[in-house]
Computed example of a mutant assay.
Amino acid sequence: MKYRKKPVVVEAIRFFDTTESMLALNDELGLDPVRVSYKDPKHPVLKIETLEGMMIANVGDYIIKGVNGEFYPCKPDIFNKTYEPAEES
C-alpha cells in the first residue's frame, strides 16, 4: 500500500551564525533557548532539544517548527525536496 504525505504548512528558519538568525529563531519561530556551541569556533552548531532527544544543526540547516510545536533540524537538500513556499494566511 502507498501513502501520500498530507499537506502541512510548517514554519522554518535557516540557521546561520548571525545575530539576525538567532533573533529570528527565538522571536519568530519560538525556539527557546537558542543554544549555539562554539566548541569548534570554525563550525558553530545549534543544539535543539527534540522529541527524540538532543539534535545538532549545522550552519545552513533549516530549523522546522512542527505541527505540535516541536522543533527539529533539516538539511537544506532534504528541505528543498520536501517543502515549497506557502502563501501567508
Rank of each mutant, 00 (worst) to 15 (best):
M1T: 13
M1N: 13
K6I: 14
K6W: 11
P7R: 09
V8E: 15
V9H: 06
V9F: 01
V10D: 04
V10G: 02
V10S: 01
I13E: 03
R14G: 05
R14Y: 05
F15S: 00
F15T: 03
F16R: 07
F16E: 11
D17P: 02
D17K: 01
S21V: 03
S21K: 04
M22C: 11
M22D: 12
L25G: 01
D27Q: 15
E28K: 13
L29G: 07
G30D: 10
D32I: 10
V34I: 02
S37H: 08
K42P: 02
K42W: 05
H43N: 08
P44W: 03
L46Q: 02
E49F: 03
T50R: 07
M54I: 15
A57H: 02
N58C: 11
N58F: 08
N58D: 14
G60W: 06
I63Y: 04
I64H: 00
K65G: 01
G66Q: 00
G69K: 10
E70P: 09
E70H: 11
F71T: 00
F71E: 01
F71A: 05
Y72V: 00
P73M: 07
C74K: 07
K75C: 00
P76E: 08
P76Y: 09
D77Y: 13
I78Q: 08
K81Y: 07
T82M: 05
Y83I: 04
Y83D: 05
E84I: 06
A86N: 11
S89I: 09
S89E: 13
S89G: 04
